[in-house]
């Protein structure tokens, strides 16, 4: 493709160092994510999925290699990147509206105009009258929607989703997958999803990256069929080709699990 990737990992390696020693979490990762693309990272636990997201977000610098965002090296967290965590972590002492606006407040962009955008965003995500309520009054699914509003409020180009649906009931989870997919598609956002749920990866993504562990590295890449991509996650799950994709991912992951790899620690 001629267009420059919005997000690029170059020869990325990361070593965690603590009092007990050093361990190699990632080794020589190369990845390009195009604008508007939805990419999922799947792999066994301990394959460094969350490390990859943290490096993309600029939470800490990689030991070796570069993370490029719009062609520039990422030096720290920026408002170009939004991050959704597994739990909502809404602040119990703030109203829903103030929770959703916390990113704007930190970047000094909280104005009456941007607060209107926050209200619109909450309405768009199905929480029209909840602005003045407190998080403990909301259900888990509603809280995770507020977390999505909080992430979108700062207008990031890239969304990093760190298993944001895994703590929810299946029913709510499927609804929220649809909502997130639709919202991101409509806004033309780029997204990287980390998940251990292969069905979720198959239903939502354009491309799935399978990671191996010890150390974390890219094992293979599965491009999802055009027919599945075009549909919402809920609709995609009903197609016969969805099952085939799921089984292919399953086989890849099984193959990954069989390999031991060397342990560095």
């Amino acid at each position: 493709m001629a267009i420059a990737p919005v997000l690029e990992l170059q020869q990325l390696s990361h070593v965690y160092v603590n009092a007990k020693g050093a361990s190699l979490a990632l080794e020589q990762l190369d990845l390009r994510v195009e604008r508007g693309e939805f990419v999922s990272l799947v792999g066994p636990s301990g394959c460094g999925k969350t490390t990859v997201l943290s490096l993309m977000a600029g939470l800490f610098p990689p030991t070796v290699g570069n993370v490029l965002l719009d062609g520039e090296a990422v030096a720290g967290p920026s408002s170009k990147v939004g991050y959704m965590l597994q739990q909502d972590f809404l602040f119990p002492w703030r109203t829903i509206r103030d929770n959703a606006a916390v990113g704007l407040e930190i970047s000094g962009r909280k104005t009456p105009r941007t607060m209107e955008i926050v209200d619109e965003l909450l309405a768009e995500l199905g929480l029209p009258d909840s602005g003045q309520r407190y998080p403990h009054e909301l259900s888990g699914g509603m809280r995770q929607r507020v977390a999505l509003a909080r992430t979108l409020a700062t207008e990031p180009e890239v969304l990093l989703l760190d298993e944001p649906f895994s703590a929810l009931d299946l029913h709510i989870k499927l609804q929220l997958e649809d909502l997130v997919h639709e919202t991101l598609t409509r806004r033309g956002k780029t997204a990287v999803l980390v998940t251990h749920d292969l069905a979720e990866a198959a239903a939502m993504s354009d491309r799935v990256i399978v990671l191996g562990r010890n150390p974390g590295r890219i094992k293979c890449e599965v491009v999802i069929d055009e027919e599945l991509r075009a549909l919402s996650p809920m609709a995609a799950r009903k197609l016969p080709s969805f099952q085939a994709t799921f089984e292919r991912l399953w086989a890849e992951l099984d193959a990954v699990d069989d390999e031991g790899g060397s342990y560095n620690g």
Partner: peptide, 11 residues
Amino acid sequence: GFIKVVRLFGA
């Protein structure tokens, strides 16, 4: 997690 939320916004 609470700390991570604000750190991710560059606080």
